[in-house]
């Protein structure tokens, strides 16, 4: 059995996925959701973060065949106020980690609309940014509602 049925950003998809294929690879290569980035491909950096039923998940170490919930990728969050907050705070340098940062942050503010600095740092510590935009990310999340 190699076909998977997935719900991504509210739409259903059927795709061929060899057993062992990661969700990240399926999303990027088969479904064209290239906003989800792969930076380490072993669950250490957070660039591939997507939400499954609102919970942030590392899609590069999630098997495509194991997913049962509804997936939200950065493509499903393009109108989220966090995007504007990241832009205004200058929380984007090279931008390769940014979609993963936004997906993680969106899960945080959905559960905790007014997170404390400690809550932001706890939730976001799994998303590495080599450019070092962290102070800006913190500011963006604090100001996400404008």
């Amino acid at each position: 059995m190699s076909d998977v049925l997935l719900t991504v950003n509210g739409q259903s998809y059927s795709a061929y996925a060899p057993v062992g294929m990661s969700l990240a690879q399926l999303l990027r290569e088969e479904l064209g959701f290239t906003g989800t980035k792969i930076a380490c491909n072993e669950g250490h950096c957070g660039a591939c973060t997507v939400q499954i039923d609102g919970v942030p998940v590392l899609s590069c170490i999630t098997l495509a065949h194991n997913v049962t919930g509804e997936i939200t990728t950065i493509e499903g969050l393009r109108d989220h106020p966090l995007i504007e907050a990241f832009v205004e705070a200058d929380a984007v340098q090279c931008g390769f980690c940014t979609p993963g940062q936004v997906v993680s942050a969106a899960a945080l503010v959905a559960a905790t609309p007014d997170p404390t600095v400690d809550q932001i740092r706890h939730q976001m510590a799994g998303n590495i940014c080599r450019c070092g935009t962290y102070p800006r990310i913190e500011e963006a999340i604090q100001k996400w509602r404008g």
Binding site: T34, E75, R78, A91, C94, G95
Partner: peptide
């Protein structure tokens, strides 16, 4: 000045070499 290309980077629309198919 906010970065002109920050929205496409943040929204995952910016196409990096890694995204080319």
């Amino acid at each position: 000045a906010v970065r002109q290309d920050a929205p496409e980077r943040a929204r995952g629309e910016a196409r990096y070499t890694a995204d080319i198919q």
